[in-house]
Simulated assay, not measured.
Amino acid sequence: MTDEVVNVLIVDDDALVRAGLSMMLAGVPDLRIVGEAADGADVPALVESAEPDVVLMDIRMPKVDGLAATEALRRRPDPPEIVILTTFDTDDHVLRALRAGATGFLLKDTPPADIVAAVRRAAAGEPILSPSVTRQLIAHVADGDDGSRLRQAAAQLAELSDREREVAVAIAHGKSNAEISAELYMSIATVKAHVSRVLTKLGLNNRVQIALLVHDAGLV
């Protein structure tokens, strides 16, 4: 980000949704719309030219959907944060996007002030997940799991030190760095260092993916 202004790219095949989001965000001093796209196919070139900090990404689009676009973006070096826009009728799709590295998701009927706050949080790398919705997503996956995901997640977490695993579990409970610091009696700087090591060891992009992995391993 430059001068603390958050550059935002809006990706949605509905012109009315794009117009509404643009109008809403354009009136916020620290947010700047740097581009719009009607399909995920147009996203790579726009990200290259406009360098957004946050991408608001629809799921259902005609050529390249938001899931494929998210996966492609997160493979780029220094990718933007991605917030999925959804009507929440496809929770398995939302989960796939989160596993791919999306920072979180917004319902399309989210109040304007909450959308603005969510964009700011995404730019700061903070997950945008309602605890109640997260439980629904985790339950949805658990219902259809044959145990292989649990075993794989447990094996990944076994690579962590005991302290790193404690931090990962705290993240899965939705705790902030300050809350983890108080709970585990360590400085915030140490918490941040542990989080960085957890992300590196597990090959993950953000705290949301840590939380999902911990849930997959049955530790929450």
Rank of each mutant, 00 (worst) to 15 (best):
D42I: 01
E36V: 10
A26C: 09
D3W: 00
G203N: 03
A123N: 05
A168E: 08
G66P: 05
G104M: 06
D109N: 12
A122R: 03
T134P: 00
D53M: 06
I33Y: 03
L157T: 04
L137H: 06
M24F: 04
V6A: 01
H194F: 14
R149A: 15
G40F: 07
R120A: 03
A178M: 12
E51T: 12
A122W: 03
F88R: 04
V17H: 04
S49T: 15
R99T: 02
E183R: 13
D162N: 10
N7C: 05
V8G: 02
P52K: 07
V198A: 02
R151L: 15
T200C: 05
V195R: 15
T103H: 00
A123L: 09
V141I: 11
L129H: 09
E126T: 10
T87L: 09
V169R: 14
R96C: 04
L184T: 10
V133P: 00
I33T: 02
Q156L: 14
D3C: 01
V214T: 08
A182M: 10
E36K: 02
G101S: 08
A118F: 11
E81F: 01
G27F: 03
P80V: 04
S161Y: 02
S49L: 13
D39Y: 08
T134K: 15
R60I: 13
V5H: 04
Y185L: 11
D13H: 11
V43Y: 08
D89G: 11
L199R: 12
D146F: 06
H194T: 04
E159V: 00
K192F: 04
A142G: 10
L184Y: 04
A182I: 08
S148Q: 15
V43T: 05
M1K: 06
V94H: 04
R197M: 06
V83W: 00
S132M: 12
D3R: 13
A50S: 12
F88A: 09
V83S: 03
V28D: 08
G101E: 06
D58F: 11
R165G: 13
H140Y: 07
A153T: 02
A113M: 12
L21E: 05
E51S: 14
V11G: 01
E166Q: 15
A50R: 12
L150C: 11
G125E: 11
D30H: 13
G27A: 11
